[in-house]
Design a protein around this nucleic acid. Sequence first.
DNA 1: CTGTTAGCGCATTCAC
DNA 2: GTGAATGCGCTAACAG
Lengths: 342, 342
Amino acid sequence: MRTTLKQIADVTKMSITIVSQVINNKPCRVSKEKRKLILETAEELNYRPNLVAVGLVKGSTNIIGLAISDIRNNFFSVLAKGVEEECQKNNWNMILCNSNDKHSKDMANLQMLADKGAGGIIFGMASETTEAMAQECIEFMQQEHLPYMLVDRYIDIQTDRIVCVDHVQGGYLATSYLLKMGHKNIAYITGPSNLIDSQQRLTGCNEALGEYGIVPNQNLIAEGKYTFESGAAAVEKLLKRSVKIDAIFAFNDMMAIGAIKRLREHGIQVPQDVSIVGYDDIFMDEFLDVPLTTIKQPMKEMGRAAARQIINPESRYKNGEKRIIFEPKLVIRKSVIDRNEL
Amino acid sequence: MRTTLKQIADVTKMSITIVSQVINNKPCRVSKEKRKLILETAEELNYRPNLVAVGLVKGSTNIIGLAISDIRNNFFSVLAKGVEEECQKNNWNMILCNSNDKHSKDMANLQMLADKGAGGIIFGMASETTEAMAQECIEFMQQEHLPYMLVDRYIDIQTDRIVCVDHVQGGYLATSYLLKMGHKNIAYITGPSNLIDSQQRLTGCNEALGEYGIVPNQNLIAEGKYTFESGAAAVEKLLKRSVKIDAIFAFNDMMAIGAIKRLREHGIQVPQDVSIVGYDDIFMDEFLDVPLTTIKQPMKEMGRAAARQIINPESRYKNGEKRIIFEPKLVIRKSVIDRNEL
DNA sequence: CTGTTAGCGCATTCAC
DNA sequence: GTGAATGCGCTAACAG
């Protein structure tokens, strides 16, 4: 059997209370000798507190619930790694829940997490989540007094308990890099136009274009769905319009990879004929035939920041001053050529 | 506040005992009317059991600890998905712990999991784990009465509580497919030779070769380390030996991808000049320039099976009849050409 | 400085 | 059929 406080109390002939106090390192209420004795026998008996019991009396456990759509998505597995690292550092744990992008699953997961006494939630909502659904989730967590941090997905949520990426900056970075590399005719494969993050990236693109005195050209914009196939399809659309294209900025990496594939099938070489920039920096980018230049979202850091926000007693229950916004970074690899040198 | 059994007892003017019995659907000890009343008010008050309290009294919670090296590894994120799916189905949860391939971290994670009252562990040990270390882990779990299932990694562990893949069959599948496609000179990029799974694959390869009356040629074998770079380096070694090569079977996908890259840099086309087969079926295979033909390990199914073994009360504590062995599958894509047609 | 007491929410044994 | 009592292992308020 596991050693309990009671056993230590029995052995040392002291009360459970004292033993508990000493072990939890509470303000000096004990003489040094007794303290030492307790600590030694605890060590000797290999005492480790029963965290379930602690959780019961404290009304909450040191567990962060990470509710996301699918851990197989590289985006989320890196986020999860960050969350878990921060947990380990603080003797917390992470319970992982997948929603498969179903809001109903999200709600079920939140409930389960609450029932299990989770000490907080890090929450990347299902992609089908409407504003009303988002509200439902948030209200639930508030009513259960569950500290939470949202991970920016597609919707614009009115809360400061959120970690997100400055996608305007991301769009700006990609476009201005392409511009600097001498590309004039830049095509865009955007995400679904109703998604706020796609809109933000486009805003950033236009800003950069403006700085070079270039007027955005609708003919150079094709809408995708953030999937490999939609990236290929977007290239098809673009090509049909027979506008000149120096480079393509795809609003995520999977579309960029789909685009490259289709370009090649048309005999168009990357980056010699057309340069490509992606977005996300997923694992495979580095190992592609033409390693993909992309805009990196610092997912791991975001996971750590979100976890810290929940674990830290200071920030646990009070809303932050403002959203935690991360700057995306340009990761230069091989998929963009310098046209200035041509 | 959350509704408790006591509140329901107060409202219905019955004892906590009865309420508990009814809600847990225990053998009929109550009259139908009372039962109905209790159930209704529970519903009305939105009662949800406090699982921490349940955990305390039961001495164990419905939580599976998944202890692996790194969730960012596609292999493990798919495994985790399987585990979590099975958990959701049974109202269990999954705590995720990364060891970063450190045995000491593994031990710390196991301890934490035990302290949190985990109801079982699914455990993919760190790659640095020696047999003695493995023993240490297993003894710890046994002493804590923690049901466990190991996920086959590199070492040969004497236990039946393990899910694994028939790697002999995997090697056999790959080689015999290549043979059937008319490749005579098949090179192998193996894993580290001290690792049992690499040995097993090689055994399978030799079996297939034997069936075609081909004698294994040491000149066609290069040892890798299961990394992208080592795959490329292995190609370099192979090429230096200037033996004729029709095809390469790399013992995992990352090495296969590294090999392809290096082959191309030497002006050798895949699959026209050299065909390639990988092993694992990681996410990116499908989206490569030349989609990779590979041997798939059914990770998700393995995760589900392992979880089931722990969740199911029948199999929870007793050792299984035998190891749960999964058959790998050949996934045909584009990286192998049919030489019979040439 | 120290120990007694109460209680977290629940399951279960035992007496009625 | 029913309910009172006990305890899971721990923390914390309170009294000495």
